[in-house]
Amino acid sequence: MINVILTLLAPIIGGFVYGIERIVKARMQKRVGPPLLQPFYDFFKLMDKRPLMIHSLHALMGIMYFIAEWFALAVLLLGNDLLIAVFFHVIAVLALVIGASSVRSPYSVLGALRELMHMISYEPLMVLMVVALFLVVGSFDIRDVLAYEGYPILRLPLVFIAFLLTIPMMLQKSPFDIAEAHQEIIGGPEIEYSGPFYEALYTGKWIEYIYVFTFVFLFGGSHYWLGVLLVILAFLFINLLDNASARLDFRAMVKFAWGFLIPMAALNVILLALWQ
């Protein structure tokens, strides 16, 4: 039941998560920060704006990104196969990239290409993570993972750390906010969207929060308190990292993912496979 509610209300809950994030980040910088409902105020303001677009394809892809993101979340929470959910996420990336590269704007196109670099950094790792969970739990079914008696985190510490460091790549946080890079390419794929169409993209990002943190939650197995604890810790860690680090080059990101994170996760999986 809770998964149906979570799926249906994902944009709203995601909005709250984003609101909390802005407050947390502000407090880390000794600021007061915006009110909790600020993302929703933004939402209504954006909806009220005069709709402007470059062309229909671009605007449509923004909306498709939102739909695909939401559908990927539905597949994750309502379906039963984690691996399929990982591959569904690629459809959202497709919409985002096609939209962003459909306008003749250097910032947008550069953002789209960098988005692809993000994908080759985190996609294999997501697959590896799901396989690692399978190795512990013995099933790809999300319900089986959530009913698992043991503590997956204890057997997959390296995979968890690797995933924790991958989250900034998925959620566009520093040091891996390379595709968005506000000070450099002004939001990348987002730059040419405005008004209601930007709103679709903006809300799509909120859903991505739920999508990513659901995977973090899975590391708690059937001990939901642990899952919640991990989510909170991961959330704080990501924001701390975001505040404390400067942006890296995309080459550094790909090298880091391929040279460090994937081997680390693979090592964990190999050791676990040999141990069992």
């Binding site: 709709p51 402007l52 677009m53 470059i54 229909s56 704007s105 910032y107 947008s108 730059i191 040419e192």
Partner: peptide, 16 residues
């Protein structure tokens, strides 16, 4: 993309 025409004003890319 070939069939949808949003009723919105068309502008050039902002591009800062």
């Amino acid at each position: 993309p070939y069939f949808v025409k949003f009723k919105a004003d068309v502008v050039h890319p902002y591009n800062c």
